[in-house]
Design a protein around this nucleic acid. Structure first.
Lengths: 345, 345
DNA sequence: CTGAAAGCGCTTACAG
DNA sequence: CTGAAAGCGCTTACAG
């Protein structure tokens, strides 16, 4: 084969050079403290001399694991995920795991495919970033004689019971609404994410609860549909433009929505924040550089990625996914920039 | 192990049910036309009945391959790469390969690590998106008794000789300059990428050649250093603000630079494009929604990703990386939006 | 067209 | 603390 070098030393070669058995070489490498110091030294010397490296396929076959975890991402093309993946990748590497990435935007995996990731020996665990995976497919994962370690991150499926890692969406919305109210806004609207997505509900719920806590009525005309994208923001913007009386502030379910919204408003001479304040959610890198720089709720994507990977790796190590599903909530942070101000008038 | 089900059927089980040898089951699965129709039918029936799936680790060990290719990405946190990875991932999946992703931003892999990806049985091939990997590490890959299939994409290392897939950077810059010249600009500047990056040189070279072809002198004061980032654009913008006489147009080596540049100019009441036209490179999604919408050179990132994956997969199939290194050039496209216009006065 | 058998390179009870 | 040996689940010459 192209990718294989005929001269690759095997554990056999190391054993010969070190004058020990292959078992001892294997032990030296996996649990060094179980062999004598003398043995250890000569084995390690032999490893160095031969340039030996363990063959993963062989080890994996023998130990019945894959050394990989798989991230199921709703849409790899969305830059929101890049930093999350980076955090996951680093954490995996530290534990000597590979990170596999699959995109669910073209085809939603069914029960069979989900199970297949494990049964085919592709991954030891799953980090699912797509809350729209069907309940039966997910539950099938837990109903196996030996369960397949899987956790949710960012999104989740409320009908199922997996460990999950997510941002504090409700608290983010609370901060957003409070920030606007503090500046004197009372007519505050919301552009929500797609109603098929849990995050949309979490954020809309947070928005409503925050409004209620401040005794601000929610004008349902100001609650617009969206789907987290720039395009959705643009459509919401057009809807705002058609209104006789507009809200003085809009809280968006994502930065992308906010960007699209502001773009349309700007192009139609509705000035942000003078005429209307706009608040995002995520704090993608662009938020700082957009015009006007976007006030938003920051999700700590690196932390989300690392936490999820760490959680799954721990589960794998302890071989235990049993104990009741936990929710790890990662704090969000309010970042005030220039897209919000006190209302005009 | 947690991830393994004790009841997983093996090829043995299928053989028993079908009343044939394991060899025949294996053949039926890998080259169906080499077995008799009758045998094939009963084997396939047995596969279905048992729910058999091949175990990758075992197959990989036996065939001395990994079924994975590895993408070395300079910085996963950069959204520029997300759509590229998506294209690669899809192409890999079609050929039943896994896509592994590693980030080189924290540590640049040396010869040993690069070789290790193959020798450890992690990947059958490499797609290298980081042109800054050191020459000796790369050449070591080619100097193995059996070479390790690797190609460059987007970036490349000019001191080495690998197959590569890249955008037509020079032509992109030519279109950019021509677009500005057509509108009457003569004082055209450039914000370049980091001088350690090949793309910076390719684009700056393209810029200079295009200027020369149009008999436009390059004012060296208008050629600013950068590094592809928003922050670099911001710094370049501050430099422009300090100038007594400014260029009437700037061609940036990336969209991010252009965004940062425009952000600073806008905040200082220098209006784009009225006071100065700004052109980007990449056409990231945000380009359309930025204010003003960015005129830019579109790189077809999906195509780049797919092409690179396809090239590498073909090499793997033909087991041949020998024939002289080819350069696959992916066309770029000019996207005219609102950040460019005729110069004032 | 098919089967018996070897072997890919490891790890791990088991025995000492 | 160490070794002999089995075995993880496949694929593939080889022989028929």
């Amino acid at each position: 084969m192209t990718s294989m070098n005929k001269k690759m030393p095997k554990i056999q070669d190391v054993a010969r050079v070190a004058g020990v058995s292959t078992a001892t070489v294997s032990r030296t490498l996996s649990s060094p403290d179980v062999v004598s110091a003398k043995t250890r030294d000569s084995v390690l010397a032999a490893v160095k001399a031969t340039g030996y490296r363990v063959n993963r396929a062989a080890r994996n076959l023998r130990t019945q694991r894959t050394g990989a975890i798989l991230a199921l991402v709703p849409n790899l093309g969305n830059p929101f995920f890049s930093e999350i993946l980076q955090g996951m990748e680093r954490t995996c590497k530290q534990s000597d795991y590979n990170l596999l990435i699959a995109d669910t935007s073209e085809t939603t995996p069914d029960a069979d495919q989900l199970e297949g990731y494990f049964r085919d020996g592709q991954a030891d665990g799953l980090i699912i970033l797509d809350g729209s995976l069907p309940r039966d497919a997910l539950e099938n994962l837990q109903n196996q004689p030996s369960t397949y370690p899987s956790i949710f991150m960012c999104e989740w499926n409320p009908e199922t019971n997996f460990h999950s890692v997510r941002s504090d969406n409700a608290h983010g919305m609370k901060m957003a609404v409070k920030h606007l109210a503090d500046q004197g806004h009372t007519d505050i609207g919301h552009v929500r994410g797609p109603m098929t997505n849990v995050l949309s509900h979490a954020r809309e719920g947070g928005f409503r609860k925050a409004m209620e806590a401040l005794n601000l009525p929610v004008n349902e005309n100001y609650v617009l549909d969206g789907d987290f994208t720039l395009e959705a923001g643009r459509m919401a913007g057009q809807e705002l433009l058609r209104m006789d009386k507009r809200p003085t502030a809009m809280v968006c379910a994502s930065d992308q929505i906010a960007f699209g919204l502001i773009a349309v408003l700007s192009q139609n001479n509705v000035i942000v924040p003078d005429d209307i304040s706009v608040l995002g959610f995520d704090d993608v890198e662009m938020a700082e550089f957009f015009y006007p720089p976007l006030t938003t709720i920051r999700q700590d994507r690196d932390c989300l990625g690392r936490s999820a990977a760490k959680l799954l790796l721990e589960r794998l190590k302890s071989r235990d996914m049993s104990e009741g599903a936990t929710v790890t909530t990662i704090p969000v942070e309010m970042v005030v920039r220039s897209s919000t101000s006190a209302p005009a008038n």
